[in-house]
Design a protein around this nucleic acid. Structure first.
Length: 206
DNA sequence: CATAGGATCGCCT
DNA sequence: GGCGATCCTATGT
């Protein structure tokens, strides 16, 4: 059953201190962009949590502040977009209050809204899992880039998250170690990657 | 299906 | 100078 409620998630949701809980709650929500006049998006099926304390994998660990990480110290509800490996943009939402620089990385969505434009941006034909099953893939599919660094995700402009009434039971969520953070030592083992069990649109497990 | 190598920007030592 | 919160293509099963 489709719900009539398409509520844009507001800043108070993001400004809570429990980044693991927020990461879980974002599963089943809809990430939607309106960029270059095109609306596109889908249901979030995979996230990762990063915490400014007790987490060496986090860019803001020990309050490390650079031009890149500056926005992480803003109050929750803004976009943290950065480039990895010189190619791919990764999209995060900052959480917690100002100066408590936590973040949730959106790693995969199930393409639902306007998949045609996503295929066009990705130069792919058909609904293959390669369309949005990875953090670099989904930003390309949705048109997210450096120009969205720091913008709020609560206004319904450019990038926002909707609650469309999808309910996710705790047993539908699989927690596992995060991807590509071996440099973080034992913090790389923290089970802070969350995905929907049995959903084919999650990124490949390592 | 698994692995290897390349692309290339920003931050670190 | 090294390497990352990655992805694609080519190659050998």
């Amino acid at each position: 059953m489709l719900s009539d409620e398409h509520t844009i998630i507001q800043a108070d949701f993001y400004q809570r201190s429990e980044v693991l809980q927020i990461s879980r709650e974002l599963l089943g929500k809809y990430l939607i962009t309106e960029i270059d006049g095109e609306v596109a998006g889908g249901m979030i099926v995979e996230t990762e949590a990063y915490s400014h304390i007790n987490d060496r994998a986090c860019h803001s660990h020990l309050s490390r502040r650079t031009n890149r990480t500056e926005i992480m110290f803003h109050a929750g509800g803004v976009a943290y977009v950065y480039k990895v490996y010189g190619f791919h943009f990764l999209f995060n939402i900052i959480t917690n209050v100002a100066d408590k620089a936590d973040a949730v990385l959106i790693r995969a969505i199930e393409p639902v809204i306007n998949p045609e434009i996503m295929q066009q941006r990705r130069n792919l034909a058909g609904l293959t899992y390669r369309l949005t099953a990875g953090p670099g893939m989904l930003t390309q599919a949705l048109g997210i880039g450096k120009q969205h660094y720091g913008i709020p995700v609560t206004t319904g402009e450019h990038i926002w998250i909707e609650d469309r009434g999808v309910k996710i039971a705790p047993e539908e969520i699989v927690a596992s170690p995060r991807v590509g953070v071996d440099y973080a030592g034992e913090d790389a083992l923290l089970p802070w990657r969350f995905r929907l069990r049995e959903n084919k649109w999650t990124s490949r497990a390592k």
